[in-house]
Structures are given as C-alpha cells and as structure tokens.
Computed example of a mutant assay.
Amino acid sequence: MNFMIEIEQEEDGRLIAEVIDFPGVLAYGQTREEAVARVQALALRILADKLEHREVTPELVSVVAALQ
C-alpha cells in the first residue's frame, strides 16, 4: 500500500501535509520535511491500529510524499 501526501502552505507560512486516503490525517510543520515527517508518523499509527483490529490485511505498507 502506498498513500499520497499533499502539502499546502497556509497563509501564516506553516505547511500542512495531508494523507489523501485517510480523511482527517493531517499535520502542520514549519518546514516541508517537518510536516511530512509528522503526517507519516500519524498515518503509521493509524495503520498500526487498523492492523491490530484486523481492519486491513498485513501487507508491506509505506507512506510516500507526492509533491503537488
């Protein structure tokens, strides 16, 4: 599984990264790298929870950034 991350810059200068396939999974950062790292960590926590509750099959999972 691969999940795409969209990154946008807010008016205040912060960057927001969002995992498109997981509604509500977003994170802010002062830099692109910080926002991506935070949203990847959050997405992986959610995937781990879904695996524990057998909501997804245990496959090799990765979260990748797609620049837009």
Rank of each mutant, 00 (worst) to 15 (best):
E10A: 11
A41G: 07
N2L: 12
Y28E: 07
V25A: 06
Y28V: 05
D21S: 10
D12C: 08
F22A: 02
L51R: 03
L15D: 00
A65I: 03
E52S: 09
E6V: 14
V25K: 01
R14C: 04
E55P: 06
E59G: 09
A37Y: 03
E52A: 15
L42F: 08
D49N: 13
R38G: 11
T31H: 05
M1F: 08
I16K: 13
F22V: 01
T57I: 12
E8G: 05
Q40T: 11
A66M: 09
L26T: 12
P58Q: 03
I16Q: 11
A35E: 05
Q9K: 02
V63R: 00
A43M: 03
A27H: 09
A17V: 02
G13K: 02
L44H: 09
L67Y: 15
E8A: 15
I20L: 00
Q40F: 02
E8K: 08
V63F: 01
E34G: 03
I46R: 14
A66G: 14
A17H: 01
H53L: 14
A48I: 15
E59C: 14
E11N: 03
A48L: 14
A66V: 12
A37Q: 08
L15T: 02
I16N: 07
I46V: 10
R38N: 13
V39P: 02
N2G: 11
E18G: 01
N2S: 11
T31A: 03
K50L: 15
Q40G: 03
A66D: 09
I7W: 04
E34R: 04
V19I: 08
K50E: 11
M4L: 12
G24V: 02
P23N: 02
R32M: 12
D21G: 10
A41K: 13
E52R: 15
T57E: 14
I46A: 07
I20T: 05
R38K: 06
P58T: 11
L44R: 07
E34H: 00
G24P: 03
T57G: 10
D49R: 14
L47P: 00
L47F: 12
I16Y: 06
L60G: 14
Y28Q: 12
P23G: 03
M1R: 10
R45T: 15
F3C: 07
V19C: 05
L44C: 12
I5Y: 00
M1L: 11
E59I: 11
V39A: 03
A35H: 04
E18V: 14
A35V: 02
A65E: 06
G29A: 04
A66E: 13
L42H: 10
E10H: 06
Q30K: 14
T57Q: 15
I5S: 01
D21E: 11
S62Y: 09
G24I: 04
R14L: 08
A37P: 00
V61P: 07
E6T: 14
Q9C: 01
A35C: 05
E8R: 14
K50G: 14
I5Q: 02
